[in-house]
Design a protein around this nucleic acid. Structure first.
Lengths: 210, 210
DNA sequence: ACCTGAACACCGTTCAAGT
DNA sequence: ACCTGAACACCGTTCAAGT
């Protein structure tokens, strides 16, 4: 049996990440992770201290998938590239953005934060713009992804179905929202909204610094 | 006994909101809410269909505390005022921002969304900027608040203590982050960051529309 | 050092019985 | 129509016992 290699913290975290990717973090259970690894529940506690700490570890595994930002280019380009990478990673693990603000940073997240702050600091925008810019950039990465995955999660596969139902029943009461929902259903290309909004923020920071 | 008025959906939601405000949403339990109301658990199910639906209802109660946006002033001022109001409400109920993206909108949230979209649409920015602007504004309201309350929640009361410990142990490995943490501890006035970043976004939308 | 059976104190929810 | 006792199928976690 391939699975009879001994348990380890890292094997547990990987299994838990895969499970959450597939079934959502709210379905994640110590017992199910143990089952997937073909061990008994209690064995997990030899390698993780409890479920909360395991979730923090899982998030840090995900953050570890974000690569180092580029070292060439303008500070805006470097931040756009790094944020896009983070966005892709968080989109792959739809539960992760929701955990981000609930867990203290692990080693990988500390490294990631440091790399964002380094780019902002070396852009010579002044301490106040760096301070606020950091909050703005991370807020955008996590907040935007969270908004994107939120509806997918709660509506499941019948997203379009629900949207149609809404348009039929509520369009007269909520005309502006009906228009917005039509925007979602359109095959119109809305472009890269993530990069667009981040661009507004970065341009604004640039302007505020000068 | 004052509490022997009959149970109702609204009394349950109010009790649940108060409980979550005080103890956090992760400590919220059907049994505890029933206890607080001096009924038995199963009675709750006569008025809410299950815990998930109750949480959706709780969030909509909170959204109901957000007032209508002003009807006078520039579109930017109206959005700043409405967003600030939403921010205050979500800051009062620290668990609510985390639920926002996980629940489908209830009646109060539909009304709120409609009011934001109305302001954007009547600003005549063009359909594409309205579409993206709506996502940007709501992302900011929820994302920013989530980031603000996140650390407060997970670090509890010893936030400053933790920050000091970080500075002592990690400042050499993460110099930029150490500087950022110092920024948090400073008695410097960082101004209204929420309004500042929203301002960047709104100015950017304005510029994109022209 | 790592694994595990048994047990504890909880969960959300259903169902049938009461008024 | 609303309330509730009993029960079911789960949870996370501890502890003592095994290797």
């Amino acid at each position: 049996m391939a699975s009879r290699q001994p348990l380890s913290r890292s094997r547990i975290l990987d299994a838990a990440v895969s499970f959450a990717d597939e079934h959502g973090v709210e379905a994640l259970t110590m017992r199910k992770i143990a089952d997937a690894l073909e061990f008994r529940v209690m064995s997990l506690y030899n390698h993780v201290t409890n479920k909360q700490e395991m979730l923090a570890g899982m998030l840090d595994v995900v953050v570890g998938e974000i690569g180092d930002p580029p070292t060439e280019g303008s500070w805006k380009d470097m931040l756009q590239a790094s944020a896009a990478d983070a966005h892709h990673v968080l989109s792959r693990h739809k539960w992760a953005a929701g955990e981000w603000s609930k867990r203290l940073p692990g080693p990988n997240r500390l490294r990631y934060i440091e790399s964002i702050l380094r780019i902002l600091t070396e852009a010579e925008l002044g301490p106040e713009v760096v301070y606020r810019g950091y909050h703005a950039v991370t807020m955008h990465i996590v907040g935007f992804t969270l908004q994107e995955v939120g509806y997918e999660q709660s509506l499941g596969d019948d997203l379009e179905e629900m949207a149609d139902a809404f348009l039929n029943e509520m369009a007269s009461e909520f005309p502006y929202m009906a228009e917005h929902v039509r925007g979602h259903l359109d095959d119109h290309d809305h472009g890269d909204e993530f990069a667009f909004v981040l661009g507004l923020i970065l341009d604004g920071l640039d302007r505020a610094a000068r």
